[in-house]
Nucleic acid binder design. Structure first.
Lengths: 347, 347
DNA sequence: CTGAAAGCGCTTACAG
DNA sequence: CTGAAAGCGCTTACAG
């Protein structure tokens, strides 16, 4: 014991646990991994030892035996920095848990996209994760699929044969629209996202459908096209705030554009939320940076990154075992996060 | 070969490389790790094989031998979400490269800080990384140090015996101030960060010193205290923009407050950068979200996260080997990033 | 239900 | 300068 300690003070291995519990390492391993074929007596003893010794499995050791070093590529192109950060957090966390390695490549246009894909494949990646907006490039998806490379798309359109992780953008936008209606707003401005993005289309459609169901006919000038960028949000918000009568609420298709809308309001002296409700979509870090903090639809981006990796590893393992897996579409839960940028219509 | 392929298609191991190059695995390992004591001939052959076979080391295997499963805790408390994300990206990346495991705990007040620390230690962490603002709580630092737990502070004050990773905030703020002077600005508003943060103090001091060197005497009302938050930036910017004559430039102690300053300007109809230059500090994702994009001092946060982990692992290894290491203070390079929010003073 | 043996991919220490 | 042996921590087969 004292020798162990000198060598590596923090390291309690499964051997220590086994010895302490008086069982073989195999039995300890089984208990730790939740294998049910272990007697209750031994199970209890092992669990007690794990707790007492503060044992935590060494993931390197584990993954060396299990996953045999899967390699996952992430190919991205010009997304919001905050979004990518959050996604990568999940990707890296799950990869590290599963003992997979991650390679990241950035690309711009179609040509550089091909080159980036080639680099990833030459580096021996077993599959590629595509965050938005690449997940919306059907050509890329299909090309990879045809070459037999497993792909997991994050958000984006559903493409046959390609697994994906997403939230239900339609239901999210619907929930937000209902919320605005409940607050009493009916003159609602809407800033759309990049029309090429599936998510933008769904959010817009949900907004319109929900209003229509409530019998509200929105003037055309209340719908403004943005590009998901802060800059486009500035222009769109100026347009909306110049309307007469002014909308009492603005629903922005993402948080960056909502930040821009709030900037315009701040400067024009329009008070939020007293005179104007502003809501966003995504719940990126900017939502809690702003003041008042932004009401928005939370997209569990980090969890989506983890799921994308998990899906990918299942796919890789299945292929290695010669099994076929159908494409999986995992829909994660969104949530309406109410903060201070929204309020009931003053009557 | 065909058998290998069936088992694990993507996996080229160091044995494959060694066989292909006609050397022992050890020689291959040495070449791959840059060990200079290998003959040029063998070196070339191994490198060619690595390239040809697309070999990438399996990190799980490597770390199993080297780091022996170090466990690193990250204890944070209410930083900007964007900053933490970026930092964690580096922390996770380096940990995964080094085969270390990461445990994260959040805490609020002092009591919850003690509890969080205890949880980390019970989980067997070998050391703790403290991002701001905890790095600025000398009490926490000392307590951990006294208990013999290795600590690496990210940013924050220099405390004896505690290693840290930082940029030179003073030189960064100095560079930015010089830049503003070069652009011809002399009526410069300054929004300070949280006075309790070492970084805020240094940035402020550098600004004042640099102006003084140029013989510029700034009226007191051009220095406004903020708290590093967007909200505090809004109030501070309003105050500055009401001055008569108005400052021609505002130097904000971080990007979040710069975003707020831009919001106020946008609304007041003050054009950036034509009528007002706004600059920030940190280069968080918000800097490129804004429009015009923000001129700021880039702090390599992700690289700092990596370095913090690397420092920590060195420290842990040294202790395990019974060696003593003096506290290391690693100063990373900052950079002045010129974007569209700054311009020469119109004459 | 339980365990002894072998091996995942790599590198540390030991020989030459 | 080069290599044969052993082992990091864990789990997959194989026995009983």
């Amino acid at each position: 014991m004292s020798k162990r300690e000198r060598q590596n003070p923090g390291a309690v291995t499964i051997l220590d646990v086994a010895r302490h519990a008086g069982v073989s390492p195999m039995t300890a391993s089984r208990v730790i991994n939740g294998n049910p074929r272990v007697g209750q007596d031994l199970r209890d003893r092992v669990q007690a030892s794990v707790k007492l010794l503060g044992y935590r499995p060494n993931l390197a050791g584990r993954s060396l035996r299990t996953t045999s070093s899967a390699r996952i590529g992430v190919l991205y192109s010009n997304p919001s920095a905050a979004y990518l950060n959050e996604l990568m957090l999940g990707v890296l966390e799950q990869s590290s848990l599963s003992g997979a390695q991650v390679l990241v490549e950035k690309c711009g246009g179609i040509a550089s996209q091909r080159a980036a894909t080639r680099r990833l494949l030459e580096a021996g990646v077993d599959g590629i994760i595509l965050p938005p907006p690449l997940c919306d490039a059907p050509q890329t998806l299909q090309e990879l699929d045809e070459r037999g490379i497993p792909v997991v798309a994050v958000a984006g359109a559903q493409v046959a044969g390609v697994s994906s992780v997403r939230i239900d953008d339609y239901q999210g936008a619907r929930a937000m629209t209902r919320y605005l209606l409940e607050l009493g707003h009916t003159r609602i401005g809407f800033i759309q996202g990049d029309p090429d993005h599936t998510a933008a289309q769904l959010r817009r459609q949900a907004f319109l459908d929900t209003l229509a169901e409530s019998g509200i006919q929105l003037p055309d000038d209340h719908m403004v096209v943005g590009m998901f960028t802060y800059r486009s949000g500035l222009a769109a918000a100026r347009q909306l705030l110049e309307l007469d009568p002014r909308p009492t609420a603005i629903f922005c298709s993402n948080d960056d554009m909502a930040a821009a809308a709030m900037a315009v309001a701040h400067g024009t002296g329009v008070r939020i939320p007293d005179e104007l409700t502003v809501v966003g979509f995504d719940d990126t870090p900017v939502a809690t940076t702003l003041w008042p903090e932004l009401t928005t639809i939370r997209q569990p981006v980090t969890a989506m990154g983890k799921s994308a990796v998990a899906l990918m590893l299942e796919e890789i393992r299945a292929r290695r075992a010669g099994r076929h897996r159908d494409a999986t579409h995992q829909v994660m839960k969104h949530a309406l996060v109410k903060r201070q940028s929204s309020a009931a219509l003053a009557s």
